[in-house]
């Protein structure tokens, strides 16, 4: 059985800067993969390139055996990839319910089906503020809302960009539980992360990116045992 997501020799530029220089890795169904690396190493750009938000200049991205590079973001989303950006980007003037409704897609047979009511079981806080405007919520609540919003599209694969960044430790713990809950639902999750503790709690495998190139892939345990890699690429 082939991998769910296969990225091969992916190149991407941002303006003049060559951010991704042949990124290659693959993800299996149902796993949580942590894409790790320093700020500016290319984590966010990798996610944006998968999503079609940054046009790949070379290489391929395949999802369930189907080439998706060069497609429009909305087409990629409809194939079953959900994207949660790093800076949250909730629709600040829309209510929680409206935020959810923007992303609503028909149910699909091969992915869990989400309704607002089901999401409110996962995120009880959101259920208590259905009519609150996105802009009037705290950072932690907004982070939960963006994840809930993405789930409304019933994705099979979720890309979470820096889910723990800028959040209080208690909220980060909640976030870790959420990611494990998604995994339990059968979702495949790609997170980008700098926090090794956090990644260690949620991820099965890690891929380390540095200057636009994947330098290491392996299980979390392998990474924990590899002092040299951690020191060189993660500055731990």
């Amino acid at each position: 059985m082939s991998a769910m997501l296969e990225i091969a020799a992916l190149d991407a530029y941002y303006g003049r800067a060559h951010i991704l220089q042949g990124v290659t890795f693959a993800m299996n169904r149902g796993e949580v993969l942590a894409l790790m690396g320093r700020n500016g190493a290319g984590k966010s750009t990798t996610m944006k390139a998968i999503m079609g938000l940054v046009p790949p200049a070379g290489g391929t991205v395949s999802f369930e055996g189907q080439r998706i590079d060069g497609r429009e973001p909305f087409e990629i989303a409809r194939l079953g990839i959900g994207y949660v950006p790093e800076d949250r980007r909730v629709f600040s003037e829309l209510s929680v319910m409206e935020n959810l409704s923007v992303a609503q897609r028909p149910a699909r047979s091969d992915a869990p089906h989400w309704t607002p009511e089901r999401l409110f079981q996962l995120f009880p806080n959101l259920g208590r503020m259905r009519d609150r405007a996105g802009g009037a919520m705290s950072g932690g609540e907004q982070q939960m809302l963006t994840i809930a919003r993405t789930l409304m599209g019933n994705p099979r694969l979720v890309l979470l960009d820096e889910p723990s960044e800028g959040l209080a430790p208690v909220i980060v713990e909640e976030m870790a539980k959420t990611i494990l809950a998604l995994k339990a639902e059968g979702l495949t999750v790609l997170i980008s992360e700098q926090n090794l503790h956090f990644a260690g709690n949620v991820a099965d495998r890690a891929a380390i990116i540095e200057k636009g190139v994947i330098r290491f892939t392996g299980t979390m345990d392998e990474l924990k045992g590899n002092e040299a890699v951690r020191s060189q690429y993660l500055s731990v």
């Binding site: 989303a77 950006p85 629709f91 409206e98 923007v102 897609r105 409304m152």
Partner: peptide, 25 residues
């Protein structure tokens, strides 16, 4: 209307609306 909600959402962040599966074009 849903169209209206989408327009208001796109007014705030059109790229995000596309990434959520809405046909931007």
């Amino acid at each position: 209307t849903r169209w209206g909600t989408l327009v208001r959402a796109a007014t705030q962040d059109r790229e995000m609306v596309g990434a959520l599966g809405v046909n931007q074009r």
